[in-house]
Write a protein that binds this DNA or RNA. Structure first.
Length: 558
DNA sequence: GACCATTAGAGTCCCAGAGG
DNA sequence: CCTCTGGGACTCTAATGGTC
């Protein structure tokens, strides 16, 4: 790239003779005080990264073949490591010139002049222009090119044309999108005076426009603040946007599994190598394998995210395939949204991958424990719902309302397997449960499943009795047919108990005081038990019975 | 970003009833 | 008798939010 200070002359005289260009961010006073060398360097930087000063081409000092660098950016794109700022070409197409700094640019970046080339840092394999300039003296010692100058120029021109062709495709695609946005605007705003549709569009853009006419319009990028971006966190989204986000996330997740060839319920491979060693190479070689040792920034993983984004986005190009949840024009999402969702899925899959015994035995064990806790938790919640249904009957029979006692944390747990499979196998456990229920034949055992009730040691017999009364009342209320629907048999009083302390202190009467004394003497759970024995019994229960009896002459059990 | 607990929702299993 | 459908209970998966 030509710059005012990149004269072909290498003599120091030439350098000092050159007109040094003061960057406009340095005042003339400050400039005058600077060392000549510093001025030269700043001048070079200014010319390389942009200046607002107008440079008039002087054939006498610049040479007859050197173009004015700021007149036509296309003439400067013969380097592989440079790309054209798409906005520039877009402006050229529109015949407009940007006179204001671009929106969203930082202060320093806004100094970049219109029409300059921007370094393509991520792909650059050759030193940037500025660094080449800095080492121009070294370069001058390198052997001269074997190509004569006109051939070199032709070669450069060819490379430029090829690169420009690709860039134009991308730019016109973007431009077409902008056009579509304007079309949409013009539907609601008849005062729109933008370029007429299709005029000047390339063949590619026209083809794209024709394709679009057959497709359902996808959400456009937000042009104002009213559209909800599905990348926002769930709590920040409206209900409909949450539904859309869930839908798109699911599409990304399913596509992720699909292109990796790992259906739901299948373990993720430990590595690509393991997968190859697994046997059917022909089958596996078509699939991506995530690198779970890496994170979301890993190049291999990013490739997968990009593939997921591209394929999901492509799948949604047909109107028939777009789920209703994703057709709301008030929601914004695009390929980058799907890319982000693929990252989210990856994180989940990585956790899943880690929970394999061969990857992390401890985590695998913990994962199984988590699943068990989840099952138990959902059973406790279901139990509270059932007991709550029987409250009216309880009130009718005993005259007191037990609703305040019903909390999921205070329900006893029910296990569908042995406490420790290393001590007792599942079959042994089932056989033991069967014998307690009077079922001993293997054939009969085949058809039943058991839930072993675990006695919570912290709970008093009085509170346990109330829950049992409610539960029995619910069970009796069912028809024989309904009871048959519950194919789990509950086994009580097996001796299995738990010292797990609920994180919600019960009413005083609900506490097993002997257990509490032992726990307090140990001291290890004193921080959890701080507020235990501080909740006075409600009317009709525990000490509340006496108070209630004095007031209402009521006795429990009436 | 890892880890964990919680949550929503989908999947699975079993059964009953309707209809051919 | 077979198939389909719907419902309930239970289980599992994946997302989410909070904390570190």
């Amino acid at each position: 790239m030509y710059s005012p200070t990149s004269s072909t002359s290498s003599s120091s005289n030439m350098a000092t003779r050159q007109s040094l260009i003061r960057p406009d961010y340095i005042t003339p006073e400050a400039w005058a005080k600077l060392d000549r060398t510093v001025q030269l360097n700043l001048s070079k930087l200014n010319s390389t990264f942009g200046t607002s000063q107008t440079y008039i081409h002087d054939p006498q000092t610049d040479g007859p073949r050197e173009p004015n660098p700021y007149l036509n950016p296309r003439t400067q794109t013969s380097q592989n490591d440079m790309i054209i700022d798409p906005d520039i070409l877009e402006q050229e197409r529109l015949g407009t010139t940007r006179s204001q700094p671009r929106r969203g640019r930082g202060r320093g970046q806004s100094r970049v002049p219109s029409g300059r080339l921007i370094p393509q840092q991520t792909r650059s394999r050759t030193p940037s222009r500025s660094s080449q300039h800095q080492f121009s003296r070294d370069r001058s010692r390198s052997p001269p090119s074997q190509l004569p100058l006109p051939s070199m120029l032709n070669e450069v021109e060819k490379r430029f044309d090829a690169q420009l062709g690709m860039l134009q495709e991308k730019i016109y695609a973007k431009f077409s999108e902008l056009e579509r946005e304007k079309e949409n605007r013009s539907d609601t705003n008849t005062n729109y005076r933008g370029p007429s549709k299709r005029r000047g569009a390339s063949t590619a853009a026209k083809r794209a426009a024709r394709r679009r006419t057959n497709h359902k319009a996808l959400p456009l990028p937000p042009d104002d603040d009213t559209r909800e971006d599905l990348r926002m966190s769930k709590s920040e989204l409206s209900t409909s946007a949450q539904v859309a986000k869930r839908c798109l996330q699911k599409l990304a997740r399913n596509k992720f599994r699909f292109i990796c060839g790992i259906p739901k319920g299948t373990n993720w491979p430990c590595s690509a190598q393991d997968r190859e060693d697994d046997g059917d190479n022909d089958e596996n070689e078509d699939f991506y394998t995530p690198n779970f040792l890496g994170d979301v920034d890993n190049v291999e993983n990013q490739e997968i995210f990009a593939a997921v984004a591209a394929q999901v986005f492509n799948d949604l190009q047909n109107a028939e395939d777009v789920p209703d949840e994703l057709t709301n024009p008030d929601h914004h999402w695009d390929k980058s949204t799907i890319f982000e969702f693929a990252k989210t899925s990856f994180r989940g899959f990585k956790e899943e991958w880690k929970k394999q015994p061969e990857i992390d035995p401890m985590k695998a064990k913990r994962g199984l424990e988590q699943k068990r806790l989840l099952r138990w938790s959902s059973r406790r919640k279901e139990k509270v719902k059932r007991l709550a249904m029987m409250v009216p009957a309880y009130v009718e029979e005993y005259g007191v309302d037990p609703t305040c006692l019903l909390d999921e944390k205070h329900m006893s747990d029910e296990a569908s397997g042995p406490e420790d499979e290393d001590v007792e196998t599942k079959e042994q456990w089932k056989s033991r449960m069967g014998s307690m229920m009077g079922i001993s034949t293997p054939a009969a055992l085949m058809n039943v499943r058991f839930l072993e009730t675990i006695k919570p040691n912290w709970r008093s017999d009085e509170l346990s009795d109330i829950f049992l009364t409610l539960h029995t009342s619910w069970w009796v209320s069912l028809t024989a047919k309904e009871r048959e629907g519950y194919n789990f048999l509950r086994v009580r009083d097996t001796g299995r108990a738990s010292d797990v302390i609920p994180l919600l202190a019960p009413f005083n009467f609900g506490i097993n005081q002997r257990w509490l004394e032992v726990q307090k003497s140990r001291g290890e759970n004193s921080h959890i038990l701080m507020d235990w024995n501080t909740f006075q019994d409600p009317d009709g229960f525990g000490e509340g019975v006496e108070a209630d009896a004095l007031g209402d002459e009521f006795q429990p059990g009436q």
